[in-house]
Amino acid sequence: MLQTEQLEYAYPAEEGKTPRLALGGVDLNIEKGSFVVVLGHNGSGKSTLAKHFNAVLLPTGGKVWVEGMDTADEALLLEIRRRVGMVFQNPDNQIVANVVEEDVAFAPENLGVPPEEIRRRVDEALAVVGMEKFVRHAPHLLSGGQKQRVAIAGVIAMEPECIVLDEATAMLDPMGREEVLSTAHRLNREKGITVILITHHMNEAEEADRVIVMNDGQVAMDGSPQEVFCQVEKLRALGLTVPDTVELLYELRQSGWDVPLDALTVEACADAVAAAMK
């Protein structure tokens, strides 16, 4: 689905300073239909990476391909952006219209989709994110989680193959975060949409297919959540925490218990501890 090769990016430098490399040679291959979580502390390059997936930023070195299309090819720009939708952090700054349905219709309108088809897509997209009751509402009166679901619907209306959530849960309360997360999982499961979730909340990675940890503009870790989270010392060194489940198992292991480190969920963790007690 998405491929990067020796991807480098340097933000334009101020005069007299050497440009700082925000991405320093990233090689990634993201499978179609997978749910990938990208973790990393602020300034690790995770958001910069995300912005390359639909040509908001163009590499200063290396290449990015979206289903074989080079993002640097300007003629393919609209097609790339249609296939890879992007949801941003601040829900207030990505809603364009002052009626929910008009906002969801924005992208298909730009793409020149016929009105009857727009209507169908808008209704379907709002149903998928569970916001069909709010068709005619004013977006500024919705909660944070609801606004982000409208933003997701606005992206789904393009019928994309991939959705990138660029810290889309960072400004939400736990309930809103849960709404967005479960919506993303549902899209992945039911519609086969590839999801790339950029976050620094560790527990959002529990159910992912793959976790990529970014540090200093490079991929520091890459693997299943179980593989990544058992490397407790390494994660801590990268300025990240581990879920409490793993931390508990880690502490017990330090005390000589024979427990696995890869029991991420509360239930799995409790099972592992209970088994070790016997």
């Binding site: 527990n203 409490d244 502490e251 509360v266 501890v273």
Partner: peptide
């Protein structure tokens, strides 16, 4: 999350105070 683990352990028959809320406490209790 630690409190939830403690409760899950109690459900599995372990004598753990279900109100603990730090990993240190829970580790010590175990």
């Amino acid at each position: 999350q630690v409190t939830r683990i403690a409760r899950a352990l109690r459900d599995r028959g372990l004598a753990i105070d279900p109100a603990v809320y730090t990993t240190e406490e829970l580790t010590a209790a175990l």
